[in-house]
Structure formats: C-alpha cells, structure tokens
Design a protein around this nucleic acid. Structure first.
Lengths: 362, 362
DNA sequence: AACGTTCGTGCGAACGTTCGCATTCATTGT
DNA sequence: ACAATGAATGCGAACGTTCGCACGAACGTT
C-alpha cells in the first residue's frame, strides 16, 4: 500500500508559511496576500495534497457523513425505486462534501435503535435519512429524543412534528380515479394494503376523495386489502370478476404495479381484454409497465427529486443546527396513462406493442 | 444535539486505572487481573462508553470502511440484484466491524478515478468493492498501481491477476442449453450481448460448449446481439420466427430475463404457445419470472453468497496485507426450470398459474 | 543471595487537523 | 509624531485514540 500522503505541514514548508495558515486558507477563514495564496495553491497542487478525513473530523467534531439503512425487499419482489433513490442521494451529498454510510436494517426494535445509537456515539455520522417510515416509528422517537438531525422519506403519525418529505400518494390515487371516472367508469375497485399501512391509507384517501367529489357512493365490497404481492392482485381480481354483474367493477386500481400485473393476468385468463373490458392501473411505474400487453397505466414517483431534497434538507439542518420548518413537504407524483386504461377499443388495439406512445399528465 | 460522550479518560477515572489500560483491554492487547477488568467493564457499562471512531481511525491509520459505487441502471430497467447484494455486503461487513461508504459513479474515466483517489488520500476507506467490471477496467489498473486493496465482483481481462469473485455465467448457459437439448431441441437461438461485453462473452461460451459437446453445429444466424433490453428481445424474436422453417429455432435462450420477456411477447403475438411451440429461457430469475404466463425458466445467481464472500475476502486482504490467492473464484448459478421450457403440452398447461411448482436443478 | 522472567500497569508521544488568541508590521487619523 | 486600527501570519493547544516502551512487584531458578 503506497502511503505517501502529503500533510498540511508539508504544504506549508514548501510554501514557506505555517501549516495553520494553509488550513485557514482551505477553510476560507482568512484573507492572504495574493502572492502567498498563489504559493500555497501551487504547493498543494504539486504535492497532490488531500486533507486527512479523520483528522479533520476528529478536530471539527463533524463527520460529513450521512447514515442510511432500509429494509431489504422480500425475495419475490424488487424494490423499484432503490437504485434511483440511492444514486440521487449520493449525488446531492457529494455536491456538498458529504458521503453516505450504509448499515444493516434490523427488524428487532432494540437492535435497530442500538445500531443508530452506536453510529451517533462513535461520531460516525452527522445525521440520518429514514425511509419506510410507519406509524409510531421508534427511530423517529429516538432521534427526536436525542435531538439528532434526521429527515424522513415518508410520513408517520399525523400529530408528530419532524422534518419529512413524502410523495403525495393520495394525489396520485385521486388523479387516476378521476381519470377513470372521466372515462365513464362508475364501479371502480381498489387493491389496497393492510389497514396498518400508513402509505396505503394515504393513497386510499385520494381514491375516496375522487369518488365523493362526483357523488359516487363507496362500495366497501370493492376495496380489497392484501400484502401488495402479485398473487394477491391475481386472486382478488378473480374474486371481483365473479361478483354478480351489477356489483362487478369495470375498473381496478392497484396500489402498486405488481398487484396490477396479477390483476391483468386474472382478467386475461377470463378472456377479458384489459383496457377495453376492464381498466387496470398500477402505482410505481416500474420499467416493465410500459412493456406489458397492454402497457400499464401507472403513477410515477419523482424519486430523483426526493433524493435531492431529502439530502439538501438534512444538510441544512446539520449545518444550521435548526430545522427551518418541521412540516412535511408533499411532492406530487405523475400519472402515466397507457393502454390498460384506454378510453376505447381502438386506442387499446393500437397501443398493443412495446413502442406504444404514452400520455403523461401534468 | 445531546453530546454527552464519555471518553476513555472518564472510564479510566471511574475504574481507577490509566486510560491507556482501558484502551488496551478493549483491543485485547493485554491481560489484566480479574478484579481490575471487572471494574473497567462496569465503568464502561455505567457510562455507556462507545469509542470515538475518528480518533481511533486517526491514530490507527485505518478507517474500517469499505467504498462502493456502481453504475445507475437506465430508466427503463431495474437492477435485479442490487438490493440483495448491498444488504448481503453490509451484514458481512458489520460482522467484522466495518461499514460501507457509497459514492456516485462517474462514467468519465478521469472523474471516476479522481473519486477513488480522493477517498484513498483522505484515508476514508481501507478498500473497495468493484462491480460491473469490464475489459481493461481503469479502476483495476489504478488500484493495482497504488497497491490499494480491492475485490471485484466480475472478471476482466483473462491475463490480469487480481482478487475477484464471479458468477459462472458460462456454467449457467451450459446448463440451460443442455436442458433444452435433453428436451429434444436442436435449433436453439441465443439472444446475446454486444461483443465488447465481458459478461456476455462468458455466458455465450457455455452455450457454445453445450452445443459442441453433443455435436450440434453452431448456426451463426441464431446468435443475435443487442443491448439486453426488452425491445431487443421482442424484435429479435420476431426476426427469428420469420426465418424459413428449416432454420427457425425451436428454443430461445436469452442472456437476461428482460429479453426473455420480450421474446415471450413476440411469440405470443404470433399465436405460439410458449413452452410448447417455442421454449424460452432467461437469466437472473427476477421476482416476476415465476409469475409470468407461462412462468419463465431462468438462472438464479447466488447473490447473497457473493456479497458475503466479496466482503470477507476484502477484509482478509486489508487485515493481513496480502491477497492469499489472486485468482478468480467462480460460483455456479442455479437453473430454475419452469413451464416456459416445459417438456410437453401437458406440463405447460398445468403450470400456467402463478402457483405453479418449480423445479430447481442442483 | 543474586538474577532473569513474567505479569500487571502507567507514561509520553503521535496521528493531522481546527480553533482561538497572540504577534508583527504597515497604514491611518489627529 | 504617536496612538489606534487593521491586515497578514504564527503559535500552542486540543480533539480521543493507539502504540511502544518502561517500570515495579512477584515468582521461580541457579
């Protein structure tokens, strides 16, 4: 291992100043004569000097590091936003001189909190990003208790005040439901998540609002709850399609794309043409959605933007010491209309190939 | 921010010893009288002492941190193994007291190397994990030059010597090709990657070996190369299916699941029953594979195991200073046989629902 | 009785920064 | 002409560890 590090002292010696002067120049805490400054920069250049991270952090009591941990996805699912979210966060962090530190996610609460505590006590991180936030999330309670900086991607209890950013899933569901209503649908089923799911409830609200706005009564037989897997979408849709005709839905809104795909399979097995005989929509806009037969209408979350915001916000809190406004920032998702909710047979047939053109709302 | 850190000196004072003694006890560099040791542990416990990371690293000139960066997946694809690979790596790292540091991937070579150089010079990492390694990878050259520890997930130039672990993609393709031959197929097409693709070439070899072993001549019209996208699989398969009957393939082996899905769509559009009229297989075994209609035969990479190995190996190199054996370790993937390569019509029809049972080879 | 050995513990220094205050020197106002 | 100002730089200390060596006591050996 080649360890030829140049230190501040080396630079200073070569530039003929004291090493503290160099430090201050680098931290912009001082104004030097043009001449001296040039000499110092030259020396830095020539020696290829890079400040030593641990020394700086030790003295400054700051780590320029942000901790992040997330629950692994189950073996039969892919996390559709992970890659983009992470990439967006590094880029935002790098721009301000920070890096991300990753650590394992523990489901056991005490182990989980111990992991956060250790990183804090060891001075390894200046703040955390939380995701997959649920009701009564113990991490939020803990970090608030310790007054340690964090920003959450996702909301928690409505009466808690903490810095967070979330996709307005309710808005997404409102948009797609309204879209279906405009197409003439009146009996719209929804494949939802369990009642404990905070994200699920937020989304469901948008559906209910859209219905009530135009005076369509809510039919609770059309709201089915499950674990968000493809199987559930498949079986639930079979169930819906075997309801007596007057109650049978003409459209199915799924809270994620996997359930929507299951729904499509069920419909196709029964000989229904998706988009014409039964409209189906998803959520997440996974890459595959546009390639399905027919292409799936879905809702795209502005993940890149969220990664940027979440990091900027956290660094602001770290560097100013004060959360500017601990309210939750909601960003709207985008409805992507494709053939699975086509207005009529013709549109559906035309867009049956992978190169189908898409309609993006907003 | 509550900053009530206890330091070594606090612990030492309370236990009535010098702080260096406490340090040595924690690092197991010393044997103490039972009595003293108990007092020290008690003090540590009572004060909730956690060693300060930056101080330790500064003195020890080690960061207990591993750097990792990977190319973001294009917007119309999901990285099917990212989540599991990362999770596996943190768990392995944590077990040995390390964490992972993530940083953005730059496509421009000089920027890319600058990122690696800065992390090294700043003393932020003790080693790197590389992935998406290609021929003549500049990162490998650079790190070897600097004699800085790293382990690659993936091979590079055959004549380069560096520590690496890779999935034996050739073996995977050998297995699936042989499987198809056993089912009676003789004209087996392959949807491959561009010639510059190292991974693609490794895999293709297995296909060629399997054919030559049973004396089937290679038909170059059946080897189509493209970018690994769904569209390519779709169009290539349409092309294959319009070949004159004697040259037309009865099976299509795709180098990833997305191309396989495209192939399935093309076949179905032409009214062919996948698994009966045309066998199709993929690679990666994405979660969706088992839910397709029919379920897709694919090849599963032992990602968890690779994450573990890659980290263990790197930490061994870091801690001993010597790469034990710079050869590439190849781990075999697993062939998952499903209905898309069913031996006959009956099997195919039976396994047409999401709950179809799977056959796992090896 | 004198002499190594081992055990348990302590001490001073160093890792490479940043921070606060002190110092030098030229410039300015009166 | 002299104190007061300000600009440019230097100095010592501190951050919390780990490392190498030294030291005294207890013990068995010659």
């Amino acid at each position: 291992m080649v360890r030829n590090r140049a230190t501040l002292k080396d630079v200073a010696r070569r530039a003929g100043v004291s090493y503290q002067t160099v430090s201050k120049l680098l931290n912009r805490q001082i104004r030097l004569s043009e001449e001296t400054e040039r000499r110092i920069w030259k020396a830095i250049e020539e020696l290829g000097y890079t400040p030593h991270y641990n020394a700086r952090s030790l003295r400054a009591q700051r780590s320029f590091t942000i901790g992040y941990s997330w629950p692994p996805s189950p073996p039969d699912e892919t996390n559709p936003i992970l890659d983009q979210f992470l990439q967006s966060m590094f880029v935002a962090a790098e721009a301000r001189g920070y890096f991300l530190l990753m650590f394992p996610y523990h489901y056991q609460v005490d182990k989980q909190l111990a992991a956060y505590a250790e990183l804090i006590d060891a001075g390894r991180v200046d703040g955390f990003i939380l995701s997959s936030v649920e009701y009564n999330d113990p991490r939020i309670r803990y970090l608030q208790d310790r007054k340690f900086p964090f920003v959450a991607f996702g909301r928690s209890n409505p009466d808690w005040r903490f810095p967070c950013i979330d996709v307005d899933g309710g808005r997404g569901l409102y948009d797609v439901t309204q879209h279906l209503i405009t197409l003439g649908h009146r009996r719209i089923a929804v494949l939802a998540w369990p009642e404990e799911s905070r994200v699920g409830n937020n989304r469901l609200e948008g559906y209910l609002t859209a219905l009530s706005e135009v005076g369509i009564p809510v039919d609770h037989a059309l709201i089915l709850r499950g674990e968000g897997r493809l199987d559930f979408g498949y079986h639930a849709t079979h169930h819906l399609l075997s309801l007596p005709l007057p109650q049978r839905p003409t459209a199915v809104v799924a809270l994620n794309d996997y359930m929507a795909i299951g729904a499509m399979q069920a419909a196709q097995e029964r000989g229904l043409r998706v988009g014409e005989d039964l409209a189906i929509s998803g959520f997440d806009d996974i890459p595959l959605a546009r390639y399905l037969t027919p292409p799936l209408t879905s809702i795209r979350q502005p993940i890149w933007e969220i990664g940027q915001q979440v990091i900027q916000h956290l660094i602001d809190i770290i560097e100013t010491g004060v959360p500017p406004e601990p309210r939750c920032l909601l960003v709207p998702p985008t409805l992507i209309v494709r053939a699975s909710t086509a207005p009529n047979a013709k549109a559906s047939a035309l867009s049956n190939s992978p190169s189908a053109k898409e309609v993006v709302n907003r």
